[in-house]
Design a protein around this nucleic acid. Structure first.
Lengths: 251, 251
DNA sequence: CGACTTTTTGAGTCTAGTCAAAACATGTGG
DNA sequence: CCACATGTTTTGACTAGACTCAAAAAGTCG
């Protein structure tokens, strides 16, 4: 079994520090707001409250009244839905700058998913009412939000396609590539995924079991597509992995 | 085998007629615009072009340049994505009043899915540029759109959950209930789904094969949950079907 | 070093897929 | 109105991929 002797250093995990100055900077860089003048941003900034959450802490639970919109300032947040069977489905992993929570305010009145901190993180929260005020004062924000949500919808539909039409092996390969695209850090030829995530998490992303994920990943490692250890993965041959994800075979 | 002798009359299928007056009425009732004053609506109406499409005609193809936004005026439109394997995944079936096409303009520059007329229909189309004009002049429209897209995202995520965590039987039951909710017509105790759709379509919605769908539906019919014939389905016991969809068993 | 969690491996089972063919429905033109 | 051509649905036999349960192995941390 190919296993790296020296685990990749993981001290790059974002510290959950969120000073006031820093916050202003972060809000100003958010996709929703970055086009706005500095003055507007500082006014908007005042409407947000920051909050540190520890890894594994639950931010809100599906079914709770959807009263706030959240933005990830630092760290990673995962969105999950629980199935009746007890199985947990991992819908998305968000990094700094992404929103979650009550954009559904308008439509649904409760959260449709559960948000959990995947790492220690700092999040910004705002009441639905205050966010509506921002939308009224800065109509462009709604348009940016529209882009972001549309994008996310397209991604979700891609996952639907994957789950409907591809083998577990392909889905796992695709999930690794997706994570690498979003959270990957290039290291020479390789791409290290900057996130601590277990076989369990990957199983919840791909609709498979931990055992199957483990078996498939061992196979990937044998084929020199990835190197992996406890809670971390490095992609060593993205090209062939991609081919496998799409065509179902390495050749 | 329980099979209805007299197939349900299907002459209720919308005629693809779309007069000018009628169009104004339709545009004014669309979720995007219905809150606007009559004057604004008539101006907006002028920016749309109507187009009749026949059943099975392709409106646009995934990968084409995303240059237009569409609204369904009459009839039903289905959105599909093709997998590399040749398998086709049915993402959604849209009815009158729903949008499709380039809300993704901003993000992606090509359509992520293929749109096909499921029945004869009349659709309204507008260029991205013109729609942007509307957004600028009527900022509320962006907010309505935000609701609509968020809602659709939540639904897509629900499908992801289904595909990840439920059996084919449960997914088929859920798909039938979803269709009934959206396109169903109550007939006494029963709900008739007002749409011609094959086992094939249902398979493409649930990530199953036509054969499996057929077997499962035969079982449903035996258990007196549904009655079905060629391209049509009537739900005769929604309550038990729902229980089955959620818990995996009728009891 | 233990205690704990995560990952791996193994053996047996079952769900849903594949391939092939029959049954059925629907519409057409003779 | 019947016989045929076409598309849809059903059924059957077989297979394989992924799940389950159980237990061992490997990391991690105090």
């Amino acid at each position: 079994m190919t296993r790296p002797k020296s685990p990749v250093r993981l001290d790059w995990v974002d510290p959950a520090v969120c000073s006031l100055d820093y916050r202003l900077k972060i809000v100003g860089r958010l996709p929703f707001f970055k086009h706005l003048p500095a003055e507007a941003i500082s006014k908007i900034n005042a409407l947000f409250h920051d909050r540190d959450v520890h890894a594994d802490e639950r931010i809100y639970h599906e079914g709770d009244d959807a009263e706030r919109l959240y933005l990830v300032a630092m760290g990673k947040v995962k969105l999950v839905r629980a199935a009746a069977s007890g199985r947990e489905v991992l819908l998305d992993i968000l990094r700094g700058g992404e929103y979650f929570g009550a954009l559904t305010i308008f439509g649904g009145r409760t959260y449709a998913e559960t948000a959990i901190a995947q790492t220690d993180c700092c999040i910004l929260q705002i009441s639905s009412a205050d966010f509506e005020t921002i939308l009224s004062e800065h109509p462009e924000v709604a348009r940016r939000a529209l882009e972001v949500v549309s994008q996310r919808l397209a991604e979700s539909q891609e996952v639907v396609k994957q789950l409907s039409a591809y083998t577990t092996e392909q889905r796992i390969a695709a999930a690794l590539l997706r994570l690498a695209g979003k959270l990957g850090e290039t290291r020479g030829e390789h791409v290290l995924i900057q996130l601590l995530f277990s076989r369990q998490d990957l199983a919840a992303m791909t609709g498979a079991t931990t055992e199957t994920v483990s078996r498939v990943m061992s196979r990937f490692a044998e084929d020199k597509l990835i190197k992996s250890g406890r809670k971390r993965v490095k992609i060593t041959d993205a090209k062939r992995l991609k081919k496998l994800a799409e065509k179902g075979a390495v050749n």
